[in-house]
Amino acid sequence: MSDVAASPNRRRGIVSLTLMAGIMLVGLHIAIGLLTLVWLPYEPNAFTGGRLEGASLAHWVGTDRLGRDLFTQLMIGSRIALTVGLGAVAIGATIGVSIGILAAFASRWLDDALAATLDILIAFPTLLIAMLVVAASDTASLGSAIVALGIALSAIVARLTRILAKRVLVMDYITAARTSGSSWPKIVAIHVLPNIWPTLSVNFALQFGLAVIAEASLSYLGLGAPPPNASWGRMLQEAQGTVYTAPLGAIAPGIALVSLAIGVNLLADGLRARIDAARTLS
């Protein structure tokens, strides 16, 4: 038995290439996002150069049509994207996991009703739901974008949680815990949540990527963070008119957005591979 027991431990030490690439890309954005809190190359709204300048030593990716430094805006964009991603996933996870657990315990008709509602919500595109929520709130702000995306993501989390929790609840160890007089809240806390967490965490990473892209879309449509907040989506929208004369203004935020989205997806993939490997071995 000891040789069987040793192999997952050995494997645990190795971080796959996918996971490593994901950690590096996401880590880069986190580092930049944190850096903006203490240092920026220029004042984000100061007119520090000519209009629509190309790349130079003073302005690494040039300036926008008002002469503001684009690299500074890109850095702030990292912080905003990460804030929105984290906030939306936190809200989506809280609401989604609560509803999912509730549905797993609910009587049959309530469970069916919840499941049907969730399926209908999921049938709507995430972005559409988020736009409705933003439209319902008075002013577009970073906060309303986060809440909107969180609510939109919660349906997917709820459906996944419900199915995972149901699968755990039929296990003998749950019955054993109940036989020994454990209460339902206690069982959820020490048995159900830890056992569904590995799968949920991978899903949260994917949702994070979705939220980042959705925030860019909202901002592009003018429903995200209002100016002067430099969101990648708004930068793309502003660069649209000058894409032939100053292509860097559109390419740079595009690359930033794609690199974070790919990084998050690689991270999720790498995590899933590791969890699957651990599961097969046990």
Partner: peptide, 21 residues
């Protein structure tokens, strides 16, 4: 719940699923 903890306990057929992995 009050009764279960002390009056009765069950040992199941499949010990792998009877333990939290």
């Amino acid at each position: 719940d009050q009764l279960r903890g002390k009056a009765v306990a069950i040992v199941f057929q499949e010990p792998l699923t009877a333990l939290d992995p």
